[in-house]
Design a protein around this nucleic acid. Structure first.
Lengths: 198, 198, 198, 198
DNA sequence: TATGAATGAGCATTCATTCAT
DNA sequence: CATGAATGAATGCTCATTCAT
């Protein structure tokens, strides 16, 4: 009988073994030949596990986002104040640890903006909803336990999306020298306004 | 006597005559042949005026951004309150009039995210600084004339960038049905917090 | 105790279970993967029984031609007049019952015209000789029993081959709407000329 | 100003300069690279003049069929008897002069049988109708001037197509050693039956 | 100045076949 | 016997760019 391979695991393995390459060069500039070589498999094997080149980025980001959200969940659970939690969210946009994920994320945004691939859009929407749902819950919690003013909810989307805006803007212009400080200052300031003064 | 052609003007003419095409299809999917045809010139002629395909997008966005900023300047001059001005800024992200510019802008962001072309980045930075400088001036004015609290300045970048964030996020997910309302609600809410209560 | 599989029978089984697929799609467009799936076996198993993809068409046409000739023999034995027999021969080119065999046959002709595979040619020659030998015997019989004029023998090849010609021509042009009537008219007319008038 | 090229003529030139190659190897086995090299142009240039690889065969056969029909028209005009004309038609299938055209024709039939490309079919139909129309006119003429019996018309398609049948059958089996004699014998015999005895 | 004919590097993808188990 | 995972050769076609006129 033939070897039975754990297709799901092998897909992950391939994706991960060419992750560094994709992160450093970008998917567009890479050829399947290079990817296959980096993954230590034949070109044909890539197509046994991925429908096309783009799907490799999908898989990589998928794995990394999963890891990131696991870690984020854990870290958030250790935190008490809403502000700290919001800051933790914003860390994605500057922390050194997430540099790779950010690179891939840029790649992904770029792909999504170019061709409006429905699959990609569905995936993006799902990711967004996950994180954003999580974010609003945190703010809601803050309101419920009297930490924040009720209006906070109405600012949720704006605050959430502001990190993205800073990240993209900065990726494209390098106009901000210290993203971390900028983000923190914004959050501090807005919490100043939103926190219920006792 | 050779015909003296206004190089600058002809460059503009070519860019404008293929604007619609670039907006509707996206630069990636277009070939120089199609662009030349739309512009009513030969393929070789394109290269007399543009260094490469990307530069066409540059030129188009350049022209359109100029027009947009002229119009914006005029419109802002008619407005009194800072909030109205901020809203006017955010109109770019949803108004029907700017649809074309937005399409090109997406194209441009996408290109910038993919390959970090230094020229492009310089151009983006300059654009950003123009608009952002303008934006901070308005907020500063608001603070100066006692309309807004001093902290407003510290939120400037965040507010400015939030529109971008919503726009990109939504381009990629279509998760927001009514961008206009979302943006206005955010601005209203934040101004509620920032306006000096007399 | 190993299971003893009847190699010949299994080869037939595989061929037959993908017959419909080959007929409907054509061998060129089919992959071994699809064929194996249709046959309910692994890809490797196909190669246990067939040397290559083309050999599958061989096997299918082999089985079908055998069935067809069996049936034809039976049907011919029921007929009295030479003309009826000749018409029975020509039925292959239009009867609904032989549609599948015709499809495969076209496939086979096409393959044979492209690459002059000697094996294929040998096979074709053998088939041709079988049928053609049979056909001349029938005509000879007709001559012998005073039904037909002696010249008939000299027309044998032409008449035999004419059905093929109409079939191929029509496959390639669809210029004939009713092949059956055309063929029958031809045979009727030629027999009018060949029959011994008493 | 740029060079203006006679596109139609250059298309012909390219087709003709790779004719020998296509005839000897067959289009399927040839790569565009080989064809371009044989034609002495770059690969890209091929696609300036031909939509795809198959279209090259189209063009070649088109040119050759045109030449052939010109020649045939001339030769037919020199002939008196209907039988001679019919034999002249059949010469295509064996004469040494038409060997190349026959090779390409086989190629073309094979392509047409495989994929039912509507363009190809339309082309084939047109060719067939041309030649067949011509053929029937000749027979009709023969009937009109009392040379042939009226039934001849009813045999027209069969006789016309018989050459094709012999050609294809023989291409696929090599069962006939002397196609010329076979064809002539058939025609002689059938004319024996069809000629009006005075 | 304008052009469009010519080009060829470049690449994703397919799939028959092999062979370790 | 049976299999299906792995493979890599093989190729049509695109298109930005050049450059002779």
């Amino acid at each position: 009988m033939a070897i039975i391979v754990d297709k799901v695991q092998k897909k992950k393995d391939i994706a991960l073994s060419c992750k560094a390459l994709v992160v450093s060069k970008g998917i567009n500039v890479l050829t399947i030949a290079q990817i296959a070589k980096a993954a230590g498999v034949g070109k044909g094997t890539i197509y046994e596990y991925f429908k096309n080149k783009e799907e490799i980025v999908f898989e990589i980001i998928n794995i990394m986002k999963f890891e990131h959200s696991q870690k984020l969940a854990h870290q958030l659970s250790q935190l008490k104040s809403t502000k700290e939690m919001v800051k933790k969210f914003s860390e994605f946009f500057y922390s050194n640890e997430e540099k790779e994920l950010r690179e891939i994320y840029k790649e992904f945004i770029s792909l999504s903006l170019m061709n409006s691939n429905p699959e990609m859009m569905a995936y993006q929407t799902q990711c967004f909803n996950n994180y954003y749902g999580w974010f609003t819950e945190i703010l809601q919690e803050g309101v419920n336990n009297g930490e924040l003013r009720a209006e906070s909810i109405k600012l949720a989307r704006g605050i959430f999306v502001m990190g993205e805006g800073m990240f993209i803007t900065n990726s494209v212009t390098h106009s901000i020298e210290n993203l971390k400080e900028e983000l923190e200052m914004f959050i501090d300031t807005i919490f100043e306004l939103l926190e219920v003064k006792k």
